[in-house]
Write a protein that binds this DNA or RNA. Structure first.
Length: 466
RNA sequence: UCCCCGAUAGCUCAAUUGGUAGAGCGAGCGGCUGUUAACCGCUAGGUUGCUGGUUCGAGUCCAGCUCGGGGAGCCA
């Protein structure tokens, strides 16, 4: 008897009549007076479950089988047969069932065989992977992560492992977490009363990265096509369904490329990973369509079949002004788009993902390339219905004199960016890249409303229990 | 961080104008059934988030706190 995963048994990759071993966790048990019990078994290999038929002739039927409850772990030996009942094609006629782990106090088992609210499940994050939703989420997340690596690998990109810890506190993407080994209760001080970071582990202030972009640009300007994919940290006190303090970000960077090349890449890339998801996880997507967001599969198919809507920032402003809508925040060239504006553009005006390009330079970071008009920079945001900003990117400023001017304008110190500036001194080339939030991508694909439910262990303000 | 809303049984919720708490699901026991969110009956299970206040009396009213949700800002 060989151990098979339920996915293989259900998919017909195991010949009917085979003697097999299954290992997994009980979801439900139903007893029949015909002298048998039905056990639905999950092992995480797919959305589906295997029905195990346990006859009362099993030695431990009365003593153990009848006491199985949701969550118990068991090993089943038996024969894979065509099901006599409705609801499944095959089932396993058990010849023996070994209980590996009981559930203490079934009355208080946190994952009962019933619906639970997501709010509640966040409080039992160590057990929620046993639910349909979080099993599906984990498989979708894995599938997308694999598809991302596959896309880049197949297109000649190198995965660059940019650092988690950075000494640069000027990455310009929000508040950062400090990394230190100093004794908080007894901080060393310099003569003028400041904290003496020369005594800290790195001999200088260190922080968790908010973006690998500046680092990955160095490899882009040597290896042409690169990307990062790793954890990213923001210490913002953000309490929303689309922000995490720790999230995973994908940041490709391409050399000899402009903003249009960048948008082309974003579009091709997203279509690829969603195609893979539709191909490889139809079971889980069907669940999300049935129980979470009815439109999610159609939305992905539509995404793949249609081209991105690309509009200029100035066009977006015009469209908002002509919308006739009364917005809480004013619509005016030179001001950033508010959430209500983005929602109108992507959910009402165009009703699909939209790329907004070429923003006023005063609302964007120093590293974005100044356009010929002198007023805008080559920035782009990809907005998705229901999620908002899913991608933020730009063509980078490759001209040292312009870059320096921007650093000065914004009030930053050129010396702090000495190695970044060096890239513009030695063989500079036009280049561009973007950042994609993995969790927001999963939200878009599944319809999951809260970002805390598309990552195994959410890190948010006042929450790091697990 | 700001603005709203919420916290009652293991879970999801109910409880009139303040009068000492109920249901469904889950769990246990029994019945029935190749069952499948099974069904029927019985049983157990609660210092109503915490602290204080008003009152003869607080789940209910008031204040503070903690936690959670939605919206906003920051962004991916």
């Amino acid at each position: 008897m060989t151990h098979v995963m339920i996915v293989d048994a259900l998919a017909g990759r195991v010949p009917p009549g085979s003697s097999i071993t299954l290992k997994g966790w009980v979801r439900t048990r139903r007893d029949s007076k015909a002298g048998l019990s039905f056990i639905h078994l999950h092992d995480g290999s797919c959305f589906g479950q295997m029905q195990v038929v346990a006859p009362n002739t099993l030695a431990n039927y009365d003593s153990e089988i009848l006491k199985l409850t949701a969550g118990c772990s068991i090993i089943v030996h038996g024969q894979l047969v065509d099901s006599q009942g409705k609801g499944q094609d095959v089932e396993v006629q058990a010849s023996s069932i070994q209980i590996v782990g009981w559930v203490d106090d079934p009355d208080a088992y946190p994952i009962a065989a019933k619906r639970h609210s997501f709010e509640y499940l966040r409080e039992v994050a160590h057990l929620r992977p046993r639910t349909n939703t979080f099993g599906a989420m984990a498989r979708v997340r894995h599938c997308l992560a694999q598809a991302i690596h596959r896309y880049f690998h197949e297109h000649g990109f190198l995965w660059i492992h940019t650092p988690i810890i950075t000494a640069s506190d000027c990455e310009g993407a929000g508040e950062m977490f400090r990394v230190s080994t100093l004794d908080l209760a007894n901080l060393p001080r310099t003569s003028d009363g400041e904290i003496d970071f020369s005594q800290d582990f790195f001999g200088r202030p260190a922080l968790l990265t908010v973006s690998g972009q500046l680092n990955v640009e160095t490899y882009c300007l040597a290896l042409s096509k690169v990307y990062t994919f790793g954890p990213t940290f923001r210490a913002e006190n953000s309490n929303t369904p689309r922000h995490l303090a720790e999230f995973w970000m994908i940041e490709p960077e391409i050399a000899f490329a402009d903003l249009n090349d960048n948008a082309d890449l974003a579009e091709d890339f997203l279509k690829f990973i969603f195609r893979v998801l539709l191909d490889e996880r139809p079971d889980d997507l069907a669940f999300f369509a049935q129980r979470i967001e009815p439109q999610c599969i159609k939305r992905l198919e539509g995404f793949i079949d249609s081209s991105f809507e690309r509009i200029e920032y100035a066009e977006a402003i015009d469209a908002l002004k002509r919308s006739g809508k009364s917005f809480e925040f004013p619509v005016q060239w030179g001001r950033d788009l508010q959430t209500e504006h983005e929602r109108y553009l992507t959910e009402e005006h165009l009703k699909r993902p939209v790329v907004v390009m070429n923003y006023p330079k005063q609302i964007k970071p120093f590293y974005m390339r100044v356009n010929d008009d002198g007023r805008t920079v080559a920035a782009m945001d990809v907005l998705a219905p229901g999620i908002g900003e899913i991608i933020g990117g730009s063509q980078r400023e490759e001209r040292l004199d312009v870059l320096d001017q921007r650093i000065d304008e914004i009030g930053l110190n050129q010396d702090d960016y000495w190695w970044y500036r060096d890239l513009r001194r030695y063989g500079t080339v036009p280049h561009a890249g973007f950042g994609l939030g993995l969790e927001r991508t999963i939200q878009y694909a599944t319809g999951m409303a809260n970002i805390r439910d598309v990552i195994p262990f959410a890190r948010t303000p006042k929450n790091a229990e697990f």
